[in-house]
Design a protein around this nucleic acid. Structure first.
Lengths: 229, 229
DNA sequence: TCAAGTTAGATTGTCGACAATTTATTGGTT
DNA sequence: AACCAATAAATTGTCGACAATCTAACTTGA
């Protein structure tokens, strides 16, 4: 069903890993479900070899858990794990904001201000409809992370943790969030960075993420999705 | 050469991953060297299947880098990567200390004070010889991390990042470090935790790690090891 | 002598099949 | 009817072999 959208990668294993990641994040493979190697191999038209390598990669990304001689299962989103993950985000993205405050070049900062203006215009035009900034270069948080200049931090946040974070964002749909409030917070963070106030930038980024996690928590507790607490 | 010390795991792949990790961290497989699948497979007496899975895992741990159709190479320690990694540690372990300050039970705190007394006694008895706290339950940092109670944070720091950190610790041997100063800093951090002063605990932990990274930086710049800057 | 193209060798990527383990089914006993 | 043991089916773990790709050696020409 999914081998139509085949992202050409150098190796089959990477390809499968990419497709499986998307399938899990977007919910095509349901949470908690078992990963059957023969079934998926047939579905994607590959042998079990590269498929297994892909599964090992997904385990590293925290998207599946594996048990020896039993197999892999897709993770179950639950409130506690979400809070734990977002606490890590607080620490890491807070640090990213701090670093950005001392290294981000002026033209990059201006470019980010333009991006926020664009978001503002979108809200004005679309009656506060939530702006879906899924992954791309329009994602404020990704831009800050990259501006940190710390290669290890960038890799960790954008390659290893991002899939899970996207999963939480998606499955709870951010329905309770207030986009205008989020935008105000983004602006405040950027102001701190522009003024080279690292302490403040870190503090604001932390509060911003903390607030988002509290909203997510409420959303999760009031929805059928992901309740295994 | 290494299949004598075979740590019995449920699966060959895990076994190999474990042994390869140790071999790399301890320098038996030199930095920057190529990982030859046929060679290692013969050496460990397994086929290439589980070996490849192990290599994929090592890539996730950041111990090797892989290139499609070319193969895997052991990472090269260099000053910039070390600084980037330790900046992440600052953020993460700082957060761990903060969390520990609000959740660590009294008996655990007392147990940690005893550990620091033990370290003190060791320094008194052995003329300030550096106390090798390699990984075990005697490692102050690991104890704090576990006391955070954040499962995601624990996994990230102790399973995914720890191998690389151990590599830096080992290859530079901490020769310039002052064990008594480090011990004083540990005590100050623990005091803050005991007093439930999260802000202070985080601040002190950050300074402590920052200081360690500066020492490591000097050590690396004055040694032949790991200079590719 | 050096450079580029070509060929030979070796290594990685992928596959299908077998062995080991787990899970499901069946049958028997209390 | 429910529980346990034994067997059958299915799944995971491992292996050896082939195909695709890269690396190194060799040849050829300027």
């Amino acid at each position: 069903m999914n081998n139509l959208i085949s992202i050409k990668s150098a190796t089959l294993s990477e390809d499968i890993a990419q497709q499986l990641t998307n399938a899990i994040v977007q919910g095509h493979i349901p949470q908690g479900s078992k990963i059957s190697e023969p079934e998926l191999a047939k579905q994607y038209g590959v042998s079990r070899g590269p498929l297994r390598e892909a599964i090992v990669k997904l385990e590293g990304l925290g998207l599946v858990t594996r048990t020896a001689n039993v197999g892999a299962r897709v993770i179950q989103l639950n409130t506690q794990d979400m809070l734990d993950t977002f606490t890590m985000r607080e620490a890491l993205e807070g640090m990213a904001a701090r670093l950005a405050a001392s290294t981000m070049p002026a033209d990059e900062i201006n470019s980010l201000y333009s991006l926020l203006d664009k978001h503002q215009a979108h809200l004005d035009a679309n009656q506060d409809e939530h702006y879906v900034q899924q992954g791309g270069n329009d994602d404020f948080h990704l831009r800050i992370i990259h501006a940190s200049g710390n290669a290890k931090l960038i890799r960790l946040l954008t390659e290893e943790l991002y899939a899970v974070i996207r999963m939480y964002r998606r499955h709870t749909a951010d329905q309770r969030s207030d986009p205008r409030q989020a935008l105000r917070e983004h602006k405040a963070i950027l102001d701190a960075i522009a003024n080279h106030e690292g302490d403040l930038a870190e503090l604001l980024m932390r509060r911003h993420i903390s607030r988002a996690s509290q909203l997510l928590k409420q959303a999760m507790e009031h929805s059928s999705v992901a309740s295994r607490t």
